[in-house]
């Protein structure tokens, strides 16, 4: 396309200002001296100090990370299997139902998913705690993983797998030695997505958790309902920082890999 017009510049500037100013304000006021979140009273890191002493928050954070690691790992395994079945499984009984169950949780309102899982857990007499949250998170995030992985599998040159079979691999060897290494980036981003979804989730966790296990979003939600507090600002700032560093690192790494590959290709073109 052609050059940016003034209209494009203005809409991009305003749009990104709209996206980022609220978070910037949040971050700035986490360093506010005053308890009042809206009046600036000088720089201080005391809210971070208080946060570090808040046992309830720390415990909830620990539970959240534990749940996220377990559920995203489980979801990645199940989601990759599901994606493989969807793309390579051919026909089998109940395929339509299966693909329906893969896609439905993506559009299902969280309140419904949460409610239905809670009713199941009560129905089978499962005590609500870390286990039930992990089960709930695995179920909905495996669907996201399977969408990410299957979109990679669809563009995957099938003759690579056939070549592996042709050269003597059993089907499972072909998957382990050829398919998996090639789709690994998609599997990893699927894991990351599942991990963030789990870290982030409030509604489903509220239904699936019991008194024995509270996750960070649940804790934040109940604190925030009472109003704005600088301690929550501090916590939010930390979470934003972690995500930002993570996303930027990931994109730099992938960018560098792309640049390197391009250079190598150019070098190869010169040699021949």
């Amino acid at each position: 396309m052609t050059r940016l017009s003034w209209f494009n510049v203005v809409s991009l500037t305003l749009g990104f200002a709209f996206l980022y100013i609220p978070m910037l304000i949040l971050i700035i006021f986490s360093f506010n001296e005053s308890k009042l979140v809206t009046v600036w009273a000088g720089f201080s890191t005391k809210w971070y100090g208080e946060l570090m002493q808040n046992e309830a928050f720390l415990n909830a954070a620990w539970v959240t990370v534990k749940v996220a690691v377990m559920s995203s790992t489980l979801a990645t395994v199940l989601g990759t299997m599901a994606a493989y079945v969807m793309v390579r499984g051919g026909r089998f009984m109940g395929r339509t139902l299966f693909s329906g169950m893969i896609y439905a949780p993506l559009v299902m309102p969280e309140v419904i998913t949460g409610l239905s899982l809670l009713l199941l857990f009560i129905g089978i007499g499962l005590d609500r705690g870390v286990l039930t949250i992990v089960l709930a998170h695995t179920t909905f995030s495996m669907c996201y993983v399977s969408v990410v992985v299957s979109s990679r599998l669809v563009t995957f040159d099938r003759s690579l797998e056939e070549a592996a079979l042709d050269l003597g691999c059993s089907p499972s060897e072909a998957f382990r030695l050829v398919t998996l290494p090639i789709i690994a980036p998609a599997v990893i981003s699927g894991w990351l997505l599942a991990f963030t979804l789990s870290l982030d989730d409030l509604v489903i966790a509220s239904f699936a958790s019991g008194p024995s296990a509270t996750t960070l979003p649940i804790k934040i939600f109940s604190a925030v309902r009472l109003g704005v507090s600088p301690e929550i600002n501090a916590l939010s700032t930390l979470m934003i920082a972690v995500v930002t560093v993570g996303v930027i690192t990931a994109s730099l790494v992938s960018k560098r890999a792309m640049v390197r590959q391009k250079q190598e290709e150019q070098a190869a073109a010169r040699v021949t």
């Binding site: 980022y20 609220p22 949040l26 934003i240 994109s251």
Partner: peptide, 25 residues
């Protein structure tokens, strides 16, 4: 990346950010 970054940030926190902006004071 600038569009996607907020997407990876906690939904709850992004909603919370507006509570401080929109309140009476």
């Amino acid at each position: 990346m600038l569009v996607i970054l907020p997407f990876w940030t906690s939904f709850l926190i992004r909603v919370y950010a507006w509570m401080g902006i929109l309140s009476n004071e």
